[in-house]
């Protein structure tokens, strides 16, 4: 039987550079179907770049990003991404989802069914005919998730999906993410919110300056991170990120 899964996603020695500056460095890892992955790290660690590379929005300068081969499924048709700032087209809530489904060449009757289904699940059905841009920021982010959900992705990339949302909106968004995962989508999200990483992930990847320093199951990461920088990050010690390696070790010794 031919597999219809595009996972695992495989990265082999992937690097990405802009004007000679390496922003992602020699990343080799694999994402099998199943566990939810949180990518954390300080600003400039390369979290968003990493997601964009995996999703195919950027091409690696070197290395290979590959998906499991399936006979009749294009990997780009089985993935979706939600960005930190939702981009809504100047049309109604329903039409925003319809546009995404049309691009995937889904038939009209199926499109209508999926739109109703995801809007209902995301709690946006009453706003169906409203212009999407008149929605609040939190509602727009829920709509962005609903739009991604309607595509029935096997893997969903989330780039800081709750940044600048209040706790209530964050909770609503996290519920939707959980529901999408429960339907079988692999979730890879970046976040600055350690609480969210704890709630929404089964494993954590810790990035620093474009390099993966640690990949650990979530419970272990939040209690006993192996990497010294990850330990400091979990403790919230962020003031000395830009110091050199020696100073950092001294600082770590002092704090231990």
């Amino acid at each position: 039987m031919v597999s219809t899964s595009i996972l695992p996603l495989q990265l082999d020695n992937v690097s990405f550079e802009v004007r000679g500056v390496r922003l992602i460095k020699d990343m080799s890892l694999s994402f099998p179907a199943g566990p939810r992955t949180a990518i954390i790290g300080p600003n400039g660690a390369g979290k968003s770049l990493f997601l964009r590379l995996c999703h195919g929005l950027l091409k690696p300068t070197s290395g290979v990003i590959s998906w499991a081969t399936t006979e009749d499924l294009n990997p780009s048709d089985a993935q979706a991404m939600v960005f930190q700032r939702p981009v809504m087209l100047r049309r109604s809530v329903a039409a925003n989802i319809d546009y995404a489904l049309k691009l995937r060449r889904i038939e009209r009757s199926e499109r209508i069914h999926r739109i109703d289904q995801v809007l209902g699940r995301a709690g946006l059905h009453r706003l169906k005919s409203q212009p999407a841009r008149t929605l609040s920021f939190g509602e727009q982010q829920k709509l962005a998730l609903a739009r991604a959900w309607a595509l029935k992705p096997q893997i969903l990339f989330l780039d800081e999906p709750t940044a600048s949302l209040d706790p209530a909106a964050t909770h609503a968004v996290e519920e939707i993410i959980d529901a999408i995962h429960a339907e079988g989508a692999h979730i890879i999200l970046t976040t600055h919110d350690l609480g969210q990483a704890r709630r929404l992930s089964d494993e954590v990847i810790f990035l620093h300056r474009g390099r993966m320093l640690e990949r650990t199951p979530s419970p272990e990461f939040f209690t006993q991170p192996r990497n010294d920088l990850a330990q400091a990050f979990v403790r919230g010690e962020l003031l000395w990120w830009n110091l050199g390696k020696d100073n950092r070790k001294n600082k770590l010794k002092q704090s231990n």
């Binding site: 929005l57 979706a80 981009v87 049309r91 546009y99 691009l103």
Partner: peptide, 26 residues
């Protein structure tokens, strides 16, 4: 500049994005 990542993520390259952008910029 505003739409590129989102539209490409949804599967619309420059060719398929033309009508959407013309409509949105109407």
């Amino acid at each position: 500049i505003e739409y590129e990542d989102q539209l490409r993520s949804l599967g619309a390259g420059p060719g398929r994005a033309i009508t959407a952008l013309l409509w949105d910029g109407r």
